[in-house]
């Protein structure tokens, strides 16, 4: 491990402490209204996300990483810190973990934020797939994928007010559906970043080529959000029909697309 990588590892460790300790503390410490257990999904999400990253590193990273425990730990720490940083960004996108989940005990936000954690980790994981010259390639790929993923989030939210339906209406169906979309889009953007490093320009071109079909999923999501919008007649949607079913379809379609693409 080079001196530069050592500093990245140190910074990642600080990031993990700064971002994830308050996350766990907020779930455990903030005074609960009895009988409500929002936060369970958010509690396990980072562990699950870390598991995904581990599997990617062990199976799809460059050979010198996948067979070296030190580099596995290095990239897992990097990924966890990255994902933690993204959780701080979520509040600027309309989902505030502390306010919505820890304080308001909002199940819809719990599920949606958990989906966002997984989605952001999928974006990061994609940058680890294939051969590359170093950690900064992973950083570049993760940054591009995550920023575009967040832009899509903002578009979906701004058109139909999804985050308001989750945080103000506390509609669990919308939370599940949006979580499904964030995971599905994270999967496609992550895959779009997979591959052996050639150049930033080539990565950029590949990214748009591979992720372009996600536009179809965005249109479907916009239509379904409009179809399942809330009103005084229907202040809460059916969780299966408007939540799990669309979320399952999103994830199935994106997984099918990624599998159909095959190796990078």
């Amino acid at each position: 491990m080079s001196e530069e990588e050592f500093y990245v590892l140190a910074a990642s460790s600080v990031g993990i402490f700064l971002f994830w300790v308050p996350w766990i503390r907020d779930i455990m410490v903030i005074y609960d209204r009895r009988g409500r257990y929002a936060g369970i999904a958010a509690f396990f999400a980072p562990f699950f996300a870390l598991g995904i990253l581990f599997l990617v590193l062990r199976n799809f990273a460059s050979l010198d990483v996948r067979n070296n425990p030190v580099y596995i730990v290095f990239y897992m720490a990097f990924g966890l810190a990255w994902c933690g940083l993204m959780t701080k960004c979520f509040s600027f996108l309309g989902l505030d973990f502390r306010h919505d989940v820890a304080e308001q005990d909002n199940y819809a936000a719990d599920v949606a934020i958990s989906g966002a954690v997984l989605g952001s980790m999928l974006c990061f994981s994609g940058g680890n797939i294939g051969d590359g010259p170093g950690w900064w390639v992973v950083f570049f790929c993760a940054a591009v994928a995550t920023v575009v993923w967040m832009l899509v989030w903002v578009v979906i939210d701004q058109v139909n007010g999804v985050c308001e339906a989750i945080t103000v209406d506390q509609d669990l169906a919308t939370g599940v559906r949006f979580a499904g979309f964030l995971v599905a889009s994270g999967l496609v953007f992550g895959r779009a970043m997979a591959g052996n490093w050639v150049s930033a320009a080539a990565t950029w071109t590949d990214f748009w080529r591979v992720s372009a079909p996600l536009g179809v999923l965005v249109v479907v999501a916009l239509l379904l959000d409009r179809l399942f919008c809330l009103s005084k007649e229907v202040p809460r949607q059916n969780v299966f029909v408007a939540g799990f079913l669309p979320a399952g379809i999103y994830i199935f379609l994106s997984a099918y697309y990624v599998l159909r693409l095959g190796a990078w």
Binding site: H99, D169, Q170, K232
Partner: peptide, 13 residues
């Protein structure tokens, strides 16, 4: 914040 109150839809319903 609006999140601290029930939604208008819920109150109307």
């Amino acid at each position: 914040f609006p999140q601290d109150f029930p939604s208008g839809n819920l109150l109307l319903s």
